[in-house]
Design a protein around this nucleic acid. Sequence first.
DNA 1: CACATCTTGAACTGATCAGTTCAAGATAGG
DNA 2: CCTATCTTGAACTGATCAGTTCAAGATGTG
Lengths: 212, 212
Amino acid sequence: MMGSIRNTDTPARKCHVAGKKQFDMDTALDAAMIQFWRAGYADTSVDDLSRATGLNRSSIYSSLGDKDTLFLRCLDRYAARYGDKYDAALSCAVSEPLAAVRAFFDVTLERIADPELPDGCLIAQSAMAIPVLSPAVAAHAKEALGLQRLRLRAALKAGRMTDQAAEAFAVHAAAVNQSLAVMSRAGASPAQLLAIVDVTIDALAQALRARD
Amino acid sequence: MMGSIRNTDTPARKCHVAGKKQFDMDTALDAAMIQFWRAGYADTSVDDLSRATGLNRSSIYSSLGDKDTLFLRCLDRYAARYGDKYDAALSCAVSEPLAAVRAFFDVTLERIADPELPDGCLIAQSAMAIPVLSPAVAAHAKEALGLQRLRLRAALKAGRMTDQAAEAFAVHAAAVNQSLAVMSRAGASPAQLLAIVDVTIDALAQALRARD
DNA sequence: CACATCTTGAACTGATCAGTTCAAGATAGG
DNA sequence: CCTATCTTGAACTGATCAGTTCAAGATGTG
């Protein structure tokens, strides 16, 4: 299959360099991550991963580990990549908490709007599948969701919200953020997703106004 | 719940009555629904369904159809059962819109709190898996989510909200409701789930107050 | 008792799954 | 050229999957 494709469709291809990895690890991991992200763990076979990454089946096992290990790496990769974006969005929370939370949601909305990326969210998808995932993967998914809440809580506290209000808004905002994954998969329009977020933003504005 | 007659552990069973169905269809469908609900479509094999329902593999195919057909029936069953509960909760929206929406969320919160039932939500789980589900199943999942939004919108309009506000709150509330499925799967506490809902309820209270 | 009707378990097909192994091919550095 | 190193395709194992088939068993009805 791979060989026939190369012989007929892809005549020229650079490969085989002794002593070094022949592929770009980041590119391969991104491709695997997107495959898991689109189809989920259960509906992704190692052959799917082979097709997505362009790596040989044997190479996947030797370089990326088995399916469970690779999924864990992709989950952590996803959490780190978007975690950084969420952190950056929330960084202005001290001076502008409302704008910070809006920027937080914008990270998700822009990701969903990006036609290069699947809808949904790898974390949300993994959370939904927790009863049938390995304990290690389940733990990482839970941790990623918990981190999201802590991120938001810290930002809201930095924005001089009370501890109690920050805790409540943080868990609410984290949940609404996950809901965007579900709704986008169900075909919700960008306008609908924005409406979902706006109600939360308005509630936060109200709470921040009451604070002063 | 299930297996009132048939228990997979029990060696001696009553069965075989000529000319009539030997099992309770509702019980079997409930058991299948719960299995799909817990593990999802991909992670439920026909053998799992056989074990869950207590029905023989052959009987499942002859009486409940193939896996896809059965899943569709379970999805519709789920949507109808809880759809009725959501409708009942929202029925007081004309006089008490805030209490109606709270009752709406209580349906979900009580379902999650019920130790007999899985966490999460069959609709939300199916929505997340739309890219890998059959078109028919995907359509039903989307429709169920759309119906939820329409239910809420009608209730809010009945509660004398403006069309625009009702539309926005309806899609927000439907999304928050789905988010409870994700968060409960990720191990959120009942208190956290309540906090998620309360922010939305407070926002609605604010909007209803502004209306008068 | 005999028949009609239904359920059952088990076997079977063909497909796909995860994971392993290995000989053949390719190439950089010596 | 030679060798060390890496990638590749393909075959293979053992398991599980969905779906089908069928003879044997069970039981109400006539």
